[in-house]
Amino acid sequence: MAMVVGIRPEQIAEYRRLHAQVWPAVLERIRQSNIRNYSIFLREPENLLFGYWEYHGHDFAADMAAMAADPETQRWWTFTAPCQVRLAGTPEGEQWAMMEQVFDLDPQD
C-alpha cells in the first residue's frame, strides 16, 4: 500500500523529530493492525511525504478501524496532522491520499 500527503516546509524538522522517536504504543498499534515494512519518505522541494507499507492481515477495514479508534494513535495524530497538508482529491475524513499501484516487480499470484 502506498499513500501521499503534503508537508508544511516549516514543519519538516518537527516531523523528522517526531518520527525519530515514535511512541512505543503507536508502533505496537501499527503492528497489531497487521502492518509491516512501513516506511515514510520525504521529497523536497515539492514537500511531499510518501508512505509505503505491507498489509499482512485478513480484514483491512477492521484493522484500520481499530487503529483509528486507538486513543494513543489519535493523540499521536494531533502532533503529526498539523505538519501535513491534505492533497486535492483526498477523501473527506482522511489525511493521506492512497495511491494506485501500477507496477510490481514481483507480483504474488
Rank of each mutant, 00 (worst) to 15 (best):
R17W: 06
M99V: 15
L49W: 02
R8V: 10
P82H: 10
W76Q: 06
Y52L: 12
E28H: 07
H19N: 13
S39P: 00
L87D: 10
Q84M: 10
G89L: 06
A61Q: 15
M98T: 14
Q21V: 10
S39W: 04
L42V: 09
F103I: 11
D104V: 14
R75Y: 05
A2Y: 03
I12M: 12
A20E: 04
E14N: 13
D70W: 05
Q74T: 11
M3A: 13
M64N: 04
R31Q: 14
E72P: 01
E10F: 03
L27E: 15
M99T: 15
S33P: 02
M99D: 09
Q74R: 15
L27P: 00
E92S: 14
Y52C: 09
E92N: 11
V85T: 15
R86W: 02
N34C: 05
P91L: 12
M98Y: 07
Q101S: 13
P107A: 07
S39V: 08
A66P: 08
A61G: 08
C83K: 04
L105A: 14
A88P: 08
V4C: 13
R31V: 10
A20V: 01
F103L: 14
Q21W: 00
R16D: 12
A66G: 12
G93P: 03
D106I: 00
E94N: 12
H19Q: 03
Q108G: 14
M1P: 13
E100Q: 15
V26I: 12
V22T: 14
R29C: 12
D104H: 03
F41Q: 09
P91A: 14
A20N: 07
G89M: 10
R31Y: 11
A88Q: 11
Q21P: 00
Q95D: 11
M3D: 06
T78P: 10
W23F: 14
Q84R: 07
E46V: 05
N47M: 06
D63E: 07
Q101T: 08
V26L: 03
Y38S: 12
N37T: 04
V102H: 08
D104A: 15
